[in-house]
Simulated scan of single mutants.
Amino acid sequence: MTTSVCGERVVLVPYRSTHVDKYHCWMQSPHLRDLTASEPLTLEEEYQMQVSWREDDDKCTFIVLDRKVFTETDSETEAMIGDTNIFLVDTEDRTRGEGEIMIAEEAFRGQGRGWEAMLLMFRYGVENLSLTHYQVKIGLINQPSIRMFTKMGFRETGRSEAFQEVTMEVEVDHRWRSWLVENTHTYTCLTHNYTD
């Protein structure tokens, strides 16, 4: 991926090897692993995972940067606050995506950056990957995320007591797409020549 997406307060950039060390530090937190249903990885495994995220055609991931910090420092690593992903969930139907968002830096939570990053990612998926249906799977303990996706128009379609998670979905119909565009009015896609 050679594309970045700029919004009002966040910038989404491809997950590159330069981001792995900081990302790995985030994932040492048991709380973040619980919220994201992630397994602990070694640093070497994290580097291998980064390559997978970059090369697999059923995944799309961006690192979330705080735009103000990035503007002030010109350093993606210093500006990193989280990540956002889309998985293509059906190999037969490549119009269905599963979204994820993680704001790892506590100082940037609860300020709308996760909301903006997720909407930018959804718009990217609609306009660049031709997605027409989204789902999210959220741990039942993660009430802030459940509330956020409810406000985005997602509705609960399933619940797993075994995995302690809820599945929520939204169709990208004309109404929802218009709402998405209205709520990402500063959306800009840029192309870059990244070396890794």
Rank of each mutant, 00 (worst) to 15 (best):
D34G: 06
M49Y: 15
E44K: 14
K22M: 03
W26N: 13
V13A: 03
S38V: 07
V51A: 13
E44V: 04
Y15R: 09
E44P: 01
S29Y: 05
H24P: 08
T42G: 00
E39Y: 12
V13R: 03
H31L: 10
C25F: 05
C25D: 05
L41Y: 06
W26G: 10
P40Y: 00
C25K: 14
T18C: 07
D34M: 09
S29L: 07
T18N: 09
Y23W: 10
L41H: 12
Y23G: 05
W26C: 01
L35N: 13
D21A: 07
H24I: 04
E46Q: 15
R33D: 04
L43G: 11
H31K: 14
Q48I: 12
V20A: 03
K22T: 06
L32D: 13
T36F: 02
R16P: 01
H19W: 02
H24S: 10
Q48A: 11
V51E: 07
H31G: 02
L32I: 13
M27R: 03
L32F: 07
M27V: 00
H24G: 07
T36A: 12
L41C: 14
V13D: 00
T18K: 13
L35C: 06
Y15E: 07
L35G: 10
W26H: 04
S17H: 00
S17D: 12
S17N: 14
T36H: 06
E44Q: 15
K22A: 05
L43K: 15
E45M: 15
Q50N: 08
Q50K: 10
Q28C: 14
M27F: 03
C25P: 00
V51S: 15
P14T: 02
R33W: 01
R16N: 06
Y23I: 02
D34V: 03
H31Q: 05
P14D: 09
K22Y: 05
R16T: 01
L32T: 06
H31E: 08
S38T: 06
E39G: 01
P14G: 09
R16W: 01
T18A: 01
H24A: 05
E46D: 15
Q50P: 02
Y47D: 03
P40M: 02
E45G: 10
V13H: 00
V20P: 01
C25N: 04
W26S: 08
Y15M: 14
D34L: 11
C25A: 15
A37N: 07
Q48L: 14
C25R: 03
R33Y: 01
D21F: 00
R33K: 08
M49A: 14
A37M: 12
C25G: 05
P30V: 08
T42P: 12
Y15A: 14
L41T: 10
P30I: 12
L35F: 05
L35V: 04
P40F: 12
P14V: 05
E45P: 03
R33A: 07
P30A: 09
Q28H: 15
Q28P: 09
T36R: 04
Y23P: 01
P30W: 00
H19R: 10
L32V: 14
T36E: 15
L35S: 14
E46K: 05
L43Y: 10
E44G: 12
